[in-house]
Design a protein around this nucleic acid. Structure first.
Lengths: 331, 331
DNA sequence: CTGAAAGCGCTTACAG
DNA sequence: CTGAAAGCGCTTACAG
């Protein structure tokens, strides 16, 4: 059963291929009669016509694919929700949103652009200068650094605000000497650094001493050392903001082993609201992100980049709505 | 800067477009001279020629894209590793591996096939009958149910073996009355059921009573009830195999609240080896999967489906190598 | 207001 | 052993 082409629709509707194309692509300026328009639409639907991506891409030099490049970063479970939401929004606008997982040395990305000819590339994390340049040469628009501080306006999701929110929560509970659990993993750095910066600024704004930063890994030893640093200094810390829930959970486990009572001896707040966090004993206070809202914001940015939508003012939910404290037992 | 086409290569190398195509696609049967071949290859490289995906797709009706459809299932962190490995293997064979996150009611998948014209569709989880049929009509090969029991030969990853391994480990530690923590989430069912089946069969093979199955959710209450069921019956259970680490961690937290000593009162084994599992107190015994090996196996299946590789006997690492017990403190 | 025709870059059946 | 030509399905400049 051969594929239904626009030629078939044209013949069946008794018009030319040109007219079919105009109708289907909403080229109003040609002033098609309402009747012609209706008939074409009806015929296309009746025949189950689906335009050929290859045909269009070949002709226009650009496909209707939005290529999202995901680097090797430790994705939160929540990221899946983000992908679903982004795919839905873009799908409604006629774009197919597709993910490429790229850890450095696969095929050079450069080849890929030409191979796939995406309408736009969305890079989570940051692309290498080489890749950026090759994209530029291919005249493919790039939306870069979605989750970095520079990308805040794209999603409404501010990494800095996350750190700030943690500090504000702890300060509101009366804490003045606060520790920060940073993560010693290069893949996390793009997230960790801005969060820490936000925390540091919040301390400064609130007149608190800067947070006592300890860099740790996901291991018991590492968490133990971190706790020791926080509790055994001259001015021990009474609360810790952790880069994420996993780090917080490591700290929590370590406290238990060392008989440090949470939250009385040490309060604790994470980020992510992992399923595990509500199960921990005591249950972990954390920050939840509404990634669906963030994805919808990103979809708007993407669509305005490809000209499928007028550039919107950042009207969507702003950071205040995207981030929410989930107060539990560790603070 | 206009794109380099095969015509450019032909002109530059002093041959016809036909010859360029033959050389680049390895059509040996035409008996091209070694010299011509060399010159074309050299020229293509020098000009930085990348074939147009759109051109080829339009001509052949099929692109060099492998489309992986991921349903809305709670992905383990480890899945990322799988994606990276699959992308690398397929990339080496000239295919671009791309992921579509599809939660039911986005654009009907049917449209997508025609839009993107993938060489093959790989479905994690199972596709709806409608989607399967539309794929069939479009004559696009489908590799379905990658992580279901039916897909075991594709990856070498057997869900049943996971359950079996858990039971064997517990039995070797002397446990005879074993509980199974199943998960009350439809999205997990494709994984949970076969794992449970494997566990049940292993018990039967070992002459043990069938596992006492309790279905739970990721919540404290739910875990508490589960533990109560296991410990307060006529013949209490001395060990629990959990569907995954998260369920095991919920049980572990619940044991702690109820002063049930793990592993002395109740032994516990999970699946996944989450980062969190080594941090728990006591640290969780679990099963780790080598998803890189599984991905390489899948890549072979995919390539042989598209005819890019002779069908391989399942030569890769088999289940025994893909699954490994990680013994820790809970057993 | 609508249509005929060209051309995007590729592959391949056919002709030399 | 190699090349000229057709055609995949689309969009759009141009002509009526």
């Amino acid at each position: 059963m051969p594929r239904v082409t626009s030629k078939d629709v044209a013949r069946e509707a008794g018009v030319s291929q040109t007219t079919v194309s105009f109708v289907l692509n909403g080229k109003d300026e040609h002033g098609l009669s309402a009747e012609t328009r209706r008939r074409v639409l009806e015929t296309a639907k009746r025949l189950g016509y689906v335009p050929s991506g290859a045909g269009r891409a070949l002709r226009k030099g650009r496909s209707k694919v939005v290529l999202c490049v995901v680097p090797d970063f430790p994705v939160a479970e929540a990221m899946e929700q983000f992908k679903l939401a982004l795919g839905r929004s873009l799908g409604e606008a006629g774009y197919t949103c597709v993910y490429l997982h790229h850890a450095g040395t696969t095929t050079p990305l450069a080849e890929l652009w030409q191979h796939v000819q995406p309408a736009v590339v969305v890079a989570f994390g940051s692309l290498s200068p080489d890749d950026t340049q090759s994209l530029h040469r291919a005249e493919i628009p790039l939306i870069d650094g979605v989750f970095t501080p520079d990308g805040t306006h794209l999603t409404g999701l501010s990494q800095e605000d996350i750190g700030r929110l943690q500090i504000e929560h702890l300060a509101a509970r009366g804490h003045r000497h606060i520790g920060y659990a940073a993560l010693d993993d290069p893949r996390e750095r793009p997230f960790c650094r801005p969060r820490l910066r936000g925390a540091t600024r919040a301390c400064s704004d609130l007149g608190l001493p800067a947070p006592q930063v300890v860099s740790m890994r996901y291991s018991r030893d590492s968490a133990r050392n971190a706790v020791a640093e926080w509790t055994q200094g001259a001015t021990p810390v009474t609360a810790v903001a952790a880069f994420n829930d996993l780090a917080a959970l490591a700290v929590l486990a370590s406290c238990r082993i060392q008989h440090i009572v949470v939250p009385d001896d040490l309060a604790l707040i994470g980020v992510d609201d992992l399923p595990m966090s509500s199960l921990a004993v005591p249950a972990l206070t954390t920050i939840r992100m509404d990634l669906t809202a963030a994805a919808d914001n990103l979809a708007s940015s993407v669509l305005s980049t490809v000209g499928a939508q007028p550039p919107t003012a950042p009207s969507g939910p702003d950071a205040a709505d995207i981030l929410a404290i989930v107060p539990r037992e560790t603070t």
